[in-house]
Simulated scan of single mutants.
Amino acid sequence: MRDRISAVSLAVLAVGLPAAARAEGPPSEIRIGQTMPYSGPASAYGVIGRVEAAYIDMINDKGGINGRKVKFISLDDAYSPPKTVEQTRRLVEQDEVMAVFGTVGTPTNLAVHKYLNNKKVPQLFVSTGATIWTEFKKYPWTIGWLPDYESEAKIYAKYVLKERPNGKIAILYQNDDSGRDYLRGFKAGLGADNAKRMIVAEASYQVSDATVDSQILTLQASGADVLFTHATPKFGAQAIRKVYEIGWKPLQLISTNSNTIAGTLAPAGLEKAQGLISAFILKDPSDSRWHNQPDYQAYLALLKKYAPTVDDKDSWAAYGYIAAQGLVKVLEQCGDDLSRENIMKQARNMDFTPGMLLPGIKAHTSPDNGYPPIKSMQLSRFEGTNWKPTGEVISGD
C-alpha cells in the first residue's frame, strides 16, 4: 500500500512541470494550492500537508465535491519566506489555483499576505495563530484557523497566576511575529504589574540557530521557577531536553507549536517531558480513551488507506485531518459558485464540528468579524505517555 500524498503533490512537491507542459484541467476541476515545510527546520509540520492531501484523495475517490474533483497542489517551501513567495506566485500565476490553503508558519504566510490580498486570492485557514490574521477589514482575503497566539498565551499566564502567584518567570520565544504575539499575550494575561514583578528573564532564538542550549542556560541563571516556551518542534525538543539535562525543574508551559508527542516530546525523551503544560484543540490521537470513538476510527481508516507511512499518533496528523475538513466544508457550501468571492463568503459563514476536535470545541465563523473558526482550548498536563486534560474548555476571547 503506497502513501498517497495526493495525485498531484507527489509530482510537484518540490519541482513542478513548466507551464507549457501542463494540461489545463476540465471546468469541473477545483484547484487548491498550498506551500508546506516538507524540508528545512520546521519539516515536522510537513505531516500536516500529507494528511490534508490524503483527505482530498479520499474525497476525490468518493466523487469529489458537488461533482467536481479537487486538484490539490502542495509545494515545499522549506519554511523559507523567499521560497514561499516563489512557490505561491507559481500557484497563483501558473497553476491558477482558486485559493491558497493551510500554509504553515507566521513568517511564511506574512511573506505572501499582501500579495494574495492584492490579487484577491483567498488565503484560507492559515496554519498559524498570529494576531494579524484577525485584521479582516484590512486583509479581507485572509482567514486563520487556530485560536490566535495572544489569546493562547493569556490562558497560560492565567494558569501561572493560579498555580504560582509568586513565581519567577522565564520566557523563550522565536524571534518573529509569532513569538512577539506570544510574548505580548503572556504579559497581557499577567497584567502590567504582575508582568513587571514576575518576569525575570526573556530570551529569543532565530530559526537558523543550531540550538537553544545557550538560551536555556541563560534563563536558568535568572533563578526562574516557571518557564514558558514558544518554539517549533525542533527547538521545543531541544529546550525540553536541555532543561532536564541541567537539572532545572521549573513549571514548564509550552505553546501549541511544539506540543506534539511524535514531533517534539518523543525526540526530547518522554521521561524529560513529564509535567509539561500546554493547550489543545484536538483529541490526542495517542490517547487510548478516544480510540473507540467513531471520529478517531474514521481518522485512522483515512491514514491506513491513503497515508500509511504517517504516524497516526502524531497530533499534527490529526491537525491536518481537522483542517482538511474545514476546507471541504467551505467548498461544499460554495455549491456551483466557486468564485473566489464566494469562497471567502463561505469561509466566514461556518458552523460545524470537525471530527477529532475536543468535546465542547467547534468551528464557527461569522461575516462581521475576523476571528478564526476555532476559538477555544483546553489545558492538559503530560503524564506518563499521554496528555491528560486539566480544567474546562476555555474560550480564547
Rank of each mutant, 00 (worst) to 15 (best):
A192Q: 15
Y205G: 07
K154R: 15
T108D: 13
S127V: 06
K120G: 11
L190A: 03
S204I: 06
F136Y: 14
E135C: 09
Y156L: 04
N166M: 12
E135N: 13
E163F: 04
P147L: 00
S127A: 10
W145M: 04
R164G: 00
K168T: 05
G191H: 06
N117M: 06
A201P: 02
I171H: 01
G102R: 00
Y182M: 12
T142S: 14
Y182D: 05
N109E: 11
K138L: 07
G144V: 00
F101L: 02
S127D: 11
V200R: 04
A130M: 02
A188R: 14
F136I: 09
A188D: 15
L161I: 14
G129F: 10
S178P: 09
T103L: 03
S127Q: 09
E150D: 07
G105H: 02
P107E: 07
I132F: 12
E150H: 05
N109L: 05
D181P: 13
Y205T: 04
Y139L: 13
N175A: 13
T134V: 10
A195Q: 00
E152L: 03
S204R: 12
S127P: 05
S151N: 07
A201K: 02
L110G: 11
S127E: 04
V200M: 03
P107F: 11
E152G: 01
Q123S: 12
L172Y: 06
Y156F: 11
V121C: 13
P122H: 02
A203E: 09
R164M: 08
D181W: 01
N166D: 14
K187L: 12
A170T: 06
T103K: 01
N118I: 03
P165T: 10
S178M: 09
A195T: 01
E150K: 15
K120T: 14
F125C: 06
Y156C: 01
F101V: 01
Y115H: 08
G129C: 04
P140A: 11
T131K: 13
D193E: 15
P107M: 08
A192I: 14
D177P: 05
H113N: 12
L183E: 06
I132R: 09
D176M: 08
P147D: 00
K158T: 10
N118T: 10
A195L: 02
I171S: 01
D193M: 06
K196A: 15
T142G: 11
G191I: 02
L124C: 05
Q174S: 09
L161N: 12
R180Q: 12
W133Q: 06
E202K: 06
G102N: 02
P147Y: 00
E152H: 03
Y173I: 02
K119C: 10
D193H: 09
K162F: 07
K154W: 00
K120M: 13
W141L: 04
V112D: 05
P147R: 00
R184H: 14
N175M: 11
W141D: 09
I169G: 05
G179L: 01
N194T: 03
K119D: 09
F101R: 02
P107D: 09
K168W: 10
T108F: 08
G102A: 02
V112L: 07
K196V: 08
